[in-house]
Write a protein that binds this DNA or RNA. Structure first.
Lengths: 121, 121
DNA sequence: CGCCGTTATCTCCGTCAGGACATAACGGAA
DNA sequence: TTCCGTTATGTCCTGACGGAGATAACGGCG
């Protein structure tokens, strides 16, 4: 019951100068996939709609095909969802994350031994 | 010309909330090790001395033992160098980076295939 | 002693990412 | 036609980050 977040490893993949994929955009994609809405996904991450929408715009511009499609009005009063490419990107990022964590476990453990977290008793 | 940096993977290891080790601090440590000076290392990265010094202070507070020792005046007119712990942290981070890159090569390649970089003929 | 280059601090300022808020468009449903 | 919740897009503002520059301390050396 340490309550420790466990040291966390975050990845940022820079595709081109100024364009990158990191934890924030990945979480947003996941949120959109789960909520079906940009605003709901943004709210869940406690970011403004404006920012969430901006990130989606950037994401859509980074790849050949858009990662998110959205619609206004209509039956469900509008919404958004991931395209096939969107799902693929999210899955690949998560896979990268998992692979990276397991490939660096040893070094992370060593680094943690050098930190102050003394296990307090 | 292509001039492409090749996609680059950056790691950020969060030890505790608000305390993390990333590419910036690692490069700074490396710079201090090579130049023997906080200001020179900072200048090399085009950051102000104030910022470089602040990062060093944070780094020293993140681990049980300081990573950087510094001295004013004296024979060499002052300077800084990495402690044994400092060298260890830098080495471990570089190792993490290398391991993570090779562990995610496949996914990175797949992601790049989805990007716009079309080789422009 | 006075010189020198670095560390160590401080204060002032410009920049800018991002939040808060306002507005409009959309389009099926009631 | 009105209602609704979401997308889409703008303006205004604040707060934090970090640079620029000044100042002082340090401590061997000449």
């Amino acid at each position: 019951m340490a309550g420790n977040d466990h040291p966390e490893l975050k990845l940022r993949l820079t595709l081109r100068g100024g364009e990158w994929l990191g934890p924030g955009k990945a979480d947003l994609l996941e949120g959109i996939a789960e909520t079906g809405s940009i605003s709901a996904a943004g709210k869940r991450m406690k970011m403004s709609y404006k920012r969430a929408w901006g990130l989606v715009e950037v994401l859509n511009g980074m790849f050949r095909e858009p990662l998110v499609t959205s619609s206004r009005g209509g039956a469900g009063h509008g919404g958004a969802e991931l395209t096939e490419t969107g799902h693929a990107v999210l899955r690949l990022y998560r896979q990268m994350q998992a692979n990276a964590v397991s490939a660096t476990e040893a070094e992370i453990a060593e680094l943690m031994q050098l930190t102050d977290i003394p296990d307090r008793k």
